[in-house]
Amino acid sequence: MPDKPKIAFYWCASCGGCEESIVDLAEDILEVAQAVDIVFWPVAMDFKRKDVEAMPDGSILATMVNGSIRTSEQEEMAYLLRRKSQILIAYGSCAHTGGVPSLANQFSKEQILRYVYEEAPSVVNEQRVRPQPRHQHNGTAVTLPEFRGLVRSLDQVVEVDYYLPGCPPTPKLLKQAVLTLLSGNLPPKGTVLAPDTALCDQCPRKETKPTDLKINEFKRPHWTQIDPNTCFLAQGIICMGPATRSGCEAQCISGNMPCTGCFGPTSRVRDQGAKILSSLASSVNAREPEDIEKILDGIADPVGTFYRYSLAKSLLRAKVTR
């Protein structure tokens, strides 16, 4: 009786939402558990790091790693799981493009550590103690990982075979990916396992998106009564749909809020923020520089709006300080 293929899940600088999307397979999880052996999944099972280290290289069929890479421990786990797995999948926005935690790339390591350990309003730390990488105890030491200067996506650290986008990916896309893996009919390496069209294509409000969009004002969502049947852009509300890959079934739109871009760009786009900027800029309904400025001033937080999930993968990657 041949052994069942081995699957593993791991999380780096993650929130656990991707783990939840796996549990959201619901009844399907019983089928998955029959077909594969889960050999590492910290949120749900007690396997330890040393169990992974003891496995022969390449003995795991596929590992899905979510979360971005912020610390040296996460780098080590990425290298370790890469060695032990035939297929490595970047699961979720953080592993794919850096995710929300990569907004920290607008700040330096020192700014972050100083605020977190000394300056935050609820912190009491008169001695200004900072976490140390090594602490001696008798003849041995306990260790903490290094906090790196930048947040990185998984493929900026190790070679990645496939990507499942989304914050989090949908259980439906996950199920499709698992079936594809088990079928042996693998797509070309580097494929993002979601449709390669923009969200506007799938959006239930598609019919109300103007072909010739003219923006006179950018409205923040709480400044207006959001019409549940009209394209957000047509209502002057920024929606990342035009620059975002589809596959999510437009869930946020069905919650009557605009897309924020979590599925990342399509394969034809190198920088998601630049893509939406170029799309919105061409729709600004003004000619004079002052009028254009006035309209663009309505965008309160360009980085947080256009690069909310993809700052690590953007061309600039981080705030450039001279």
């Binding site: 610390t71 935690p101 700040f107 972050i112 605020y115 977190v116 906090f147 937080d301």
Partner: peptide, 23 residues
Amino acid sequence: QVPELRGFEVFSLGRPAEDMPQI
């Protein structure tokens, strides 16, 4: 030992208040 830190309290600063529920 907690071997993780992402810094939400830092990178949320300066962002629109209405983005906080989703961030």
